[in-house]
Design a protein around this nucleic acid. Structure first.
Lengths: 192, 192
DNA sequence: TTAATTCCAGAACATTCGTTCTTTAACCAT
DNA sequence: ATGGTTAAAGAACGAATGTTCTGGAATTAA
């Protein structure tokens, strides 16, 4: 009865995610998003409300795809230290090498959009969930004898969340590969 | 013979530094800088060239004042581990508590202005100098028996530079004071 | 074929930004 | 006191941005 849409919202989200990730929220203009996604301005507004709404959708997509993959083993029943280390190796790779130094999209948005309550609420909840996930793994590590029982796993879990953000910002800081890799390795040595 | 200037360039730099630090380069508009500094638009352009030139001047000022104070003992002849720890305690305090979570101005600018060669050249050189300073202290620490001789002090120094950026971004991420302090403490535990 | 509906393309709008220009005012050597 | 020089104040400009609006096109039920 009516003219059908000429674009795929899933593609819009995927393409917009890459744009926001690479250039930041402010650096990805609406005009360029229209060009890159192949959708119409009107269509994007109808589907996502406004630019912030589109960003939120891309962040959800980022968690459900990129982060979901990175945390796969971390979410396993018996996950402990090896799974944590594997997670960080993957994060380090994605943040710097797979994206040419774009960092972590969640971390980037968390900083750039701190003034936007809608985004901030979501990113903060994500990092809180991540912290609890780390703590669970650390607890398992203690139960399995991988980690000394006197270690403060709550403090350690907060540290690991901070490390994710640290890795992201360092990936974006264009240090030498040597400096970056050394940073990661030393940072993870606290889990020994 | 000519009308004298009605503003103090030193005050302009100091005030602009606070504005850039708190709101970022893009977030501190020229109009607001004119208002806050009390200088004239014309005067600022004549003195600093353009907005980027003003930013560069504020970064130099930041290094000569804030950072100079933070690294005072670190630059001492016999500086070693205690001086490094003191430096990070100070950085952690400034980045979060003294500035209401504005982070480190050098780190912020390093990230936000990565596309501006003039700024990038300067911030990169700063972090390089900082890395060498750390390595010197770590070397002293080994000489004084504070640090095990088999430790890779080059890797450690790269880690410490990465940690400065990590502290900055975490200070801006509004974690709880508990989470932030835990992050700092665990991060520094690698120096034990 | 027609009518109703929804879409697309892009013009238009309102804002904001960094920068430049114009006008007026302030100073001082003479 | 005055002419020459430079600063101040802010209007003006051009570019860019997110958002809205307009005119025409595509689709389908009748």
């Amino acid at each position: 009865m009516a003219r059908p849409r000429n674009f795929d919202p899933d593609i819009v989200v995927e393409v917009a995610m890459r744009a926001f990730w690479e250039h930041g929220y402010a650096g990805a203009s609406f005009d360029k998003l229209v060009d890159d996604t192949g959708a119409s301005r009107h269509g994007i507004y109808q589907e996502f409300g406004d630019k912030t709404g589109l960003l939120l959708s891309t962040l959800l997509h980022y968690e459900q795809t990129v982060l979901h993959k990175l945390t796969l083993e971390l979410r396993g029943e018996k996950a402990a230290l090896p799974e944590i280390r594997q997670f960080f190796q993957r994060v380090a790779k994605v943040a710097r090498y797979d994206t040419e130094g774009a960092g972590c999209f969640m971390c980037n948005s968390h900083i750039e959009m701190e003034a936007e309550p809608q985004i901030r609420e979501y990113t903060e909840s994500f990092f809180q969930r991540l912290q609890r996930l780390f703590r669970r793994c650390l607890s398992q590590a203690q139960a399995q004898g991988e980690l000394e029982p006197e270690k403060n796993i709550t403090a350690l879990s907060h540290y690991l969340v901070g490390l994710v953000r640290g890795i992201s910002v360092n990936a974006r800081s264009n240090p030498s590969a040597k400096a970056y890799d050394a940073y990661i390795e030393v940072a993870l040595s606290v889990l020994k």
